[in-house]
């Protein structure tokens, strides 16, 4: 089924509570945005890299975390170099590199299920406002179940449209896919209600 970005391990970072790690991240991020000098940011980078080593994250995996943002960071660096100077451009890019690596570290060392559970606990006070946190769990479970189902239905629709020579039109694929899955959704809802939620 769907993989996760979690990297199994038993480091101290892996054992920290998921909620604590998730809550620490915005605090860390806010501090980073208040820092405007290179030396403390470089120290933060060294710290985050040391924590990656502690969690036994392979170096190539560390680099892979930065790849999606590399292009935009380069554009920002050049733009800032032009608008301001080298030190401001470095501060800007360094800050994002540290923040992205810190966030990636939380993702790599925390199971998705633990983060979901932490989020459900955090949402519990909303229960008093009439929202049901259990429905949140149901929605997550259903989404994960629907992704492979949709892939199967999409393939069936594609086969059917290919027979009519219409498999190149996105509309000919998307509309039957959505209508068929909406009908399926109604059946699923009836089945869940029939079983008493």
């Amino acid at each position: 089924m769907i993989g996760s970005l979690y990297l199994p391990g038993r480091s101290p970072l892996h054992r920290l509570p998921a909620g604590l790690k998730a809550a620490a991240l915005p605090v860390f991020g806010t501090v980073l945005f208040l820092v405007e000098r290179i030396v403390p940011l470089a120290a933060a980078l060294a710290l985050v890299i040391a924590l990656h080593a502690l969690a036994r994250v392979p170096p190539r995996l560390v680099l892979r975390q930065l790849r999606p943002a590399a292009g935009i960071l380069l554009v920002l660096f050049l733009s800032q170099l032009w608008l301001a100077d080298l030190s401001e451009a470095t501060v800007l890019v360094l800050r994002f590199v540290v923040l992205i690596l810190a966030a990636a570290l939380v993702t790599l060392t925390t199971r998705s299920a633990d983060l979901v559970a932490a989020l459900e606990r955090a949402l519990r006070p909303l229960g008093m406002l009439g929202a049901d946190p259990r429905k949140f769990g149901l929605a997550i479970a259903l989404t994960l179940r629907f992704i492979p189902v949709l892939a199967v239905v999409a393939e069936e629709v594609r086969e059917a449209q290919r027979a009519r020579g219409r498999d190149r039109s996105i509309l000919a694929l998307a509309v039957p896919l959505i209508v068929r899955t909406l009908k399926l959704a109604d059946e699923v809802a009836e089945a869940i209600d029939a079983r008493g939620g």
Binding site: I2, L5, A69, I72, L73, F96, L99, I100, A104
Partner: peptide, 21 residues
């Protein structure tokens, strides 16, 4: 955000919310 690689290109995790875009 909880770490499923569901964004195009298999991206995911809290890191994607840390970037400038």
């Amino acid at each position: 955000a909880v770490g499923l690689p569901l964004l195009s290109g298999g991206r995911g995790g809290i890191g994607v919310f840390a970037g400038p875009t």
